[in-house]
């Protein structure tokens, strides 16, 4: 049984009186430890699919399960608790809180756990070490380069040891060198730490780093 199972998933938006179908009847399986890259043109519904998997949006029809959790059946409160334990989300624009240091940003998901302050510190410093930014722990986002900001965001996504990492165009706002570093880091998270990753991108170089590539276009998912 796959770690992530999507069955007959549909999403239809209503804009004024017009119904807009993003996709319809999608099926997808992702095995534990897999690094799947999802490509497609703008507006094809890639980000919508990621949001649905993370429980940030509700599908019009279909089911999503991650491990034993039926994501589409959960209440908003259950979804929040589930996300904090099982989902690491990486954004294109990093979305770090500007008033917090790198350390404090990475610590944010751990505040939702019962870990003590010293335990949180240990986790945060370990993960900052993994992304190569332990010496920048006290720096604010404005004091970091784009690549460094994204690495902090990756550290924040993995610090709670989630079941699945969802990355939405993580290299979309980076120069080639920084993008390469970020992709190498994600590959390492998958290879060394066996993290299951679903990465959405336009970037062909990013696609080359995954185990498999799928395309979403005009509501149709192809392998």
């Amino acid at each position: 049984m796959a770690l992530l199972e999507i069955r007959n998933l549909s999403k239809v938006y209503q804009r004024d009186s017009q119904m807009i179908t993003v996709f319809e009847g999608i099926d997808l399986d992702i095995e534990a430890g897999e690094f799947l890259v999802l490509m497609g043109p703008s507006g094809s519904g890639k980000t919508t699919l990621l949001n649905l998997v993370a429980g940030l949006d509700k599908p019009t029809a279909g089911t999503i399960s991650v491990g034993a959790a039926e994501v589409t059946e959960m209440s908003p409160r259950q979804l929040a608790a589930w996300r904090s334990r099982h989902v690491g989300f990486i954004f294109q624009l990093y979305n770090l809180l500007p008033v917090l240091t790198a350390y404090q940003n990475v610590e944010l998901p751990l505040l939702l756990t019962h870990l003590s302050k010293s335990e949180r510190r240990e986790h945060v410093m370990t993960v900052l070490e993994v992304v190569g930014l332990s010496d920048r722990a006290d720096h604010y986002p404005r004091q970091l380069s784009g690549g460094e900001e994204q690495r902090v965001a990756i550290a924040r996504a993995v610090v709670s040891d989630p079941t699945v990492i969802l990355a939405d165009e993580p290299t979309g706002d980076l120069d080639a060198k920084s993008a390469d570093e970020v992709l190498t880091l994600m590959q390492r998270l998958n290879g060394e730490f066996n993290k299951t990753i679903l990465l959405v991108t336009h970037d062909q170089r990013a696609a080359e780093r995954g185990h498999a590539v799928m395309h979403l276009d005009k509501g149709v998912l192809t392998g």
Partner: peptide, 9 residues
Amino acid sequence: VLKTLGYSD
């Protein structure tokens, strides 16, 4: 973003 991280309503 905080909601995405799992912060409840």
